[in-house]
Write a protein that binds this DNA or RNA. Structure first.
Lengths: 218, 218
DNA sequence: CTCCCCTTTTGAACATGTTCAAAATTGAGT
DNA sequence: ACTCAATTTTGAACATGTTCAAAAGGGGAG
């Protein structure tokens, strides 16, 4: 009975995500989720192998929202700076309701065994989806990014985004204003640095950075 | 009886750290630690408020070893590159026995509530101790680092070290060779980048980077 | 309708981190 | 040596993530 089954699964997920948002990670016990959804504990486990799996459910949803919002905002934007800024702010917008939950999310995600982990393995679905968002921001830019960098830039930006997300987790300022400021300040620095790549001395170091980055990943 | 008390505490810590090393974080249960030390579970909790506290004990010890080893190795080294390389490799040496435990350590440390967390709050003791190691590497260098950077460089390097440590956690190559390569490749890039700081265009961007970094931390 | 197999659901049981009231031990003062 | 308050130790109890054998439900073949 696919219909009823899918309904139960969705119900459990919805209750879990709402509780994550409203009362945080630790207070959201599997028993509470089950009770809230009107099912037994074992039934919740029939659909989600672990509490971490529910975190992944959240991750996937946040990711999808980020992609959608970024895609939408990027419509009218041409230059790389604006596109990047829009992409990063879109990410922060989507994460905002989960801020109190952020630290636990990071702690969960960072385990190599976590299905959410963006670093582990090579091409996690999670990482690919996130990367695609930055690839879109870079590829649609005009003027385009320096040819030499175009292949690696999305991955580097994505890595930077992970850093920004980490900063965001610890940002206790109201509505995480500091992270917003960080984004606004960092984006112009990135675009300006890119134009420095033409200076011969800088270019040489850049070559070596890219070389190292590629050799390490190999 | 301070002596006996200290002895018990030390015993519990020793057993815990050995088990962390030998069987990993999850398999090292509080019951197993207590049994191994020949005390009751409650007694272990009398000395360590939580399992995380035992992780901190490990962190403090690793930190101290790193500081000692770095200090020792730095004796004969003059130029910043060598000093940095020695400092980073010393860190990897000290962490090596705990590699299998690394991911759990990171997951524990990254929680804002963790006593080990290097980012949370302002001047965690842990962070200060770690920073001091890099300050020593920078301050003793000749030729000295660019004046403009001297104040911020240790903190930036420390941040880079956190990144390297994260890379190390996920490094599945034998004896974490890739991380060693990363260190060896990244250090020359850093020193060469520092010398680029004299180029006017680069210098201007650098000023802005430092300005942003300071305004965000304020 | 009945039987049978597959999916779904249940709830008790287990492992582990943590708490706590009570017991045991200790050391100083007499 | 005795007393007593503080320190140390104990082990049972609790909360929570997770497992699992058994029960319930559902739908197609006969």
């Amino acid at each position: 009975m696919t219909a009823k089954s899918e309904q139960t699964r969705q119900l459990v997920a919805d209750v879990a995500l709402r509780m994550f948002r409203e009362v945080g990670f630790e207070k959201t016990t599997m028993r509470a989720i089950a009770a809230g959804a009107g099912v037994s504990v074992g039934n919740a486990y029939y659909y989600f192998a672990s509490k971490d799996d529910l975190v992944q459910e959240l991750y996937v949803q946040v990711q999808a929202e980020h992609a959608a919002k970024a895609h939408e905002t990027l419509e009218g934007l041409k230059d790389l700076g604006s596109r990047l800024k829009a992409t990063l702010h879109a990410g922060l917008d989507v994460m905002a309701p989960y801020h109190r939950f952020g630290a636990d999310f990071v702690a969960t995600a960072i385990r190599p065994t976590s299905p959410v982990n963006p670093f582990a393995g090579e091409s996690t679905a999670a990482r690919e989806a996130s990367l695609a968002i930055f690839r879109a921001a870079v590829e649609g830019a005009s003027p385009p990014a320096p040819k030499k960098l175009r292949a690696d830039l999305p991955e580097l930006l994505w890595l930077g985004y992970m850093g920004i997300a980490l900063f965001w987790v610890y940002d206790t300022s109201e509505d995480q204003r500091r992270t917003r400021k960080l984004v606004d300040g960092v984006v112009p620095l990135i675009t300006r640095s890119l134009s420095l790549a033409r200076i011969p001395g800088v270019n040489k170091v850049l070559d070596d950075v890219l070389g190292l980055s590629r050799s390490i990943r190999a």
